[in-house]
């Protein structure tokens, strides 16, 4: 449980962090909450030469409502996210999902930026970020840019973040119209990660018809994904049990499922369907 030797740098600003990453030419990794990277290092599955600790950068902390967006600083912990009144009021499913991550210690240390940048295929937040169409505010040598969540995750543990880029914050648009959302999770009893987690956002018209649906699933497949077929099946329909059941049957479309010791691919596919329906049901209940 002892990592290989590494150098440690402490950045006092995002710009300095980017500079440090650049100067170490791909040998450096960012240390935020340390709840994804450090376990890998202890098992010697990751051996970065340098850690750039961004934990002291004040700019990366805090939650704010900016116009129509909820902006969450990258260093915001899962605990802060789950307890924040603005999050609970504007995007309750985000607060709820954050409160289901790992255990209390993990939530007290783990950060939103680190979670999304880690791109663990069983992590809870990617599903919620996908369903809320979040955008990651990224800082790099070429300056600032925004990457939509859907373009951010490229594969298991793989993102569009460059080796010298830092996630500054995550921008979660607050749906303008009447909407409902929920996150439902089947927890892996060992790791606490999602064996299947479904996040749903339903934009409704006055009559209760679904104008637009956004459904994202994590944990079940080899990466978090938008369940487009489910969304299509919901669009223009009444938000009722029959519609949900029919739509959720398509939750596994377009994703690839593989098994492990805990659950086979078949079972994970089934869980994706069941938990999509449960999230839909929960959203309107």
């Amino acid at each position: 449980m002892i990592p290989t030797a590494f150098d440690y740098e402490r950045a006092s600003s995002v710009e300095e962090a980017v500079h440090l990453l650049q100067s170490h030419k791909g040998e450096a990794r960012i240390l935020a909450g340390g709840h994804s990277l450090l376990p890998l290092m202890k098992l010697r599955l990751a051996s970065p030469a340098v850690l750039v600790d961004i934990g002291g950068i004040q700019d990366l902390k805090g939650i704010a409502v900016e116009g129509k967006d909820l902006v969450v600083g990258a260093l915001t912990t899962h605990s802060e996210l789950s307890r924040d009144e603005r999050v609970k009021k504007n995007l309750p499913l985000l607060a709820e999902a954050a409160g289901l991550i790992g255990d209390l210690q993990v939530r007290n240390r783990g950060t939103v930026g680190g979670n999304l940048a880690g791109a663990d295929p069983a992590s809870d937040l990617p599903a919620v970020a996908l369903a809320l169409e979040a955008r990651l505010m990224v800082e790099g040598p070429q300056g600032a840019k925004e990457i939509p969540m859907e373009d951010f995750i490229l594969g298991p543990l793989l993102t569009a973040l460059g080796p010298d880029e830092v996630v500054r914050a995550v921008r979660f648009p607050i749906p303008a119209e009447t909407w409902k959302g929920a996150y439902a999770k089947f927890e892996h009893p060992a790791s606490g990660y999602a064996a299947a987690g479904a996040a749903v956002v339903l934009l409704l018209d006055e009559g209760g018809t679904i104008k637009e649906a956004r459904v994202a699933i994590t944990g079940a497949a080899d990466m978090a994904y938008r369940a487009r077929a489910v969304e299509e099946a919901l669009k223009g329909e009444k938000a009722d049990e029959e519609v949900f059941t029919r739509a959720a049957e398509q939750a596994a479309e377009g994703a690839s499922f593989s098994g492990d010791l805990f659950a086979s691919g078949d079972y994970r596919r089934h869980l994706a369907q069941v938990y999509t329906r449960r999230a839909l049901r929960k959203a309107v209940s």
Binding site: P189, A190, L261, F262
Partner: peptide, 13 residues
């Protein structure tokens, strides 16, 4: 041993 960490070996919580 395939269940060699707490990620795979499920302790009751």
């Amino acid at each position: 041993l395939l269940t060699g960490t707490f990620q795979d070996y499920a302790m009751p919580k």
